[in-house]
Amino acid sequence: MSVIVVSELRKQYDHKVVVDGLSFEVEEGEIFGILGPNGAGKTTTVECIAGLRKPDGGTISVHGLDPQRDGTKLHQIVGMQMQQSAMPDKLRVAEAMELYASFYDNPVDWRALMADLGLKEKADSAYEKLSGGQKQRLSIALALVGSPKVAILDELTTGLDPGARRDTWELIEQVRDRGITVLLVTHFMEEAERLCDRLAIIDGGKIIALDTPTGLVAKVDQDQKVRFRPGSTLDDELLTVLPEVTSVERHHQQVVVTGTGNLMHAVTSVLAQHQIVALDLRSEQATLDDAFIALTGRRFDHAAE
């Protein structure tokens, strides 16, 4: 069942079109990713869904509610963690939780939620004394305290160190396990690949692809590469005759075999037949990064510039 339906969404600031006719649907209980470079229109899109911004065109429905018309009802069922939003410096964690719980008709037990998010020891700490990761966890907790049906998480892990980022990923999976539909905005490929059930890749305010992460990668018809260092002399011909192999190159001692299909199996079988040991054997497969390049013709990291 689709719980969020976005149709032909448009939004412009001054004369710059930021969201240009986006349409997508989010299923109940899934982690739906919105991936794209900075300035692609991701945040504007979710801010329209959360009722924070008024679209210039198109329709949005969240559990049957129109974010502009049914704002108060919508805020009861949508929890959002925002980029660049802080709490007052001297506000303590438990106070923030209790305060935000008081805003909702059916809040969860905020003490239990605080403990679930590993903030119990920090209950009496002022906001200004929290680490970046702890602030993010509080921000997630505040987005969940009203027992929402939909959680919107915007650039949750930006600015976190890799360890804290991985911890946060586990948290997001826990959120989904609570039965909450998650709308995740990110510009990290790895994050989208790891977490999302489905994702929309947005660029220039338009959806350029929408699929499961595996589906997106599979669409990229990219050659596979197998790299290894032969333990004894290897005649390239042994490999080039294989139907799976398109080319064999050598970089110093390393052999790079490019090809399609079940390349790894084909190469290792031949090597085994001739009793050649393959050292540092490695296979390279297309990633979401490659998918992005294939879809936009640009490198993802550079797409924003």
Binding site: H75, M87, F103
Partner: peptide
Amino acid sequence: GYREKGILRRLSITPV
């Protein structure tokens, strides 16, 4: 300060 830190913005997506 509340506006600068996004506190007012954060509150605007709560029911209150």
